[in-house]
């Protein structure tokens, strides 16, 4: 088919896609080309296009600072802990909800667990603040008193946040993954359980040798999809919940917050775009690798 007949026959398709194409060009493709500013020393006198090339100077500078190591470590370690918790807790929740005798209660619990998923991170930061504020917060004014402990400056204590953030993240996302795993469990054919009961398998044995093995493809796919994004942090969680408390930066600064702060707060375009490109490139490789694994497990679930 020649281009001309193509256009005559399908011109309306191009019209339909035009708004989307326009959006993608401005929102995605021009910024992709714009990553070249990471190799420039942008100054407003010359303008972005005419600013001088400095090639890898921004990257050299970035990796000389201790920040590069801290933000990479934080991003990876937090995401790995999130991925593990997002696997274990929702699977356990889904199995238990599925076994509950009172189905109405099970539905009620599922609904409440899912609620956190729909709260914005600003709201989450309020909820945490209500508990952790140093002079009014419920933990310091009530719980610590009952336990006979001294009040703590929660927003200054670096030791606590590596435990607190995974808990908050799990609390927020467990509902979403529970829904997905529960759907997969319900999709398991009854016959497996019937056969298992005839063989005299206890409930525990059924969970171990029927439910979990049959859930494995779903678990692997959902986990690999998260691993593909292990280099991208949840900006809201790390920006809103610690309330930008400076003393906490060593344990709350991740690549995304670093990029934001060096750019918006410090105005350092070169350093910020270098960090951004570093994230995009490593992220790209990781998505590729994880997708390659997804394809090997379940072709239909692969992104590409």
């Amino acid at each position: 088919m020649t281009l001309a007949t193509n256009m005559r026959r399908y011109w309306i398709f191009y019209v339909m896609m035009a708004p989307g194409v326009l959006f993608l060009i401005f929102n995605n493709y021009i910024p992709m080309l714009g990553t070249v500013i990471a190799f420039k020393n942008v100054n407003y006198a010359d303008g972005i296009i005419n600013s001088p090339w400095v090639w890898f100077d921004n990257f050299k500078y970035l990796f000389k600072t201790s920040d590069a190591w801290i933000i990479t470590r934080n991003t990876l370690l937090y995401n790995i802990s999130f991925i593990i918790l997002n696997m274990i807790v929702p699977v356990a929740f889904a199995i238990m909800l599925n076994e509950m005798k009172n189905k109405l209660m099970a539905k009620f619990h599922q609904a409440v667990i899912f609620l956190a998923y729909f709260l914005s991170m600003v709201v989450v930061s309020y909820l945490v603040y209500g508990f952790l504020h140093d002079t009014h917060g419920f933990v310091n004014t009530s719980i610590m008193k009952w336990l006979g402990l001294e009040p703590l400056q929660w927003y200054f204590e670096t030791k606590i946040w590596p435990f607190l953030l995974p808990i908050i993240n799990t609390w927020k996302n467990v509902g979403y993954y529970t829904v997905l795993y529960l759907a997969a469990i319900i999709g398991i054919d009854d016959e497996y359980y019937e056969a298992a009961t005839i063989d005299g398998a206890s409930k525990w044995q059924q969970i171990k040798s029927v439910t979990i093995p049959l859930l494995m493809p779903t678990i692997i796919v959902l986990t690999l999809l998260q691993i593909g994004r292990v280099f991208y942090a949840d900006f809201g969680l790390f920006f809103q919940v610690p309330r930008e408390s400076g003393p906490l930066f060593p344990v709350t600064n991740v690549i995304d917050t670093y990029v934001y702060r060096t750019f918006i707060a410090m105005g350092d375009i070169g350093l910020s775009s270098a960090a951004g490109l570093y994230q995009s490139l490593v992220g790209f490789i990781l998505v590729f690798l994880s997708n390659w694994f997804v394809r090997r497990v379940d072709k239909d679930s692969a992104l590409f």
């Binding site: 910024p31 992709m32 080309l33 714009g34 500013i37 990029v259 775009s273 951004g276 994230q279 995009s280």
Partner: peptide, 10 residues
């Protein structure tokens, strides 16, 4: 993706 800075500048 191009990251925050170029996206913001657009």
């Amino acid at each position: 993706n191009g990251g925050l800075v170029p996206w913001y500048l657009v």
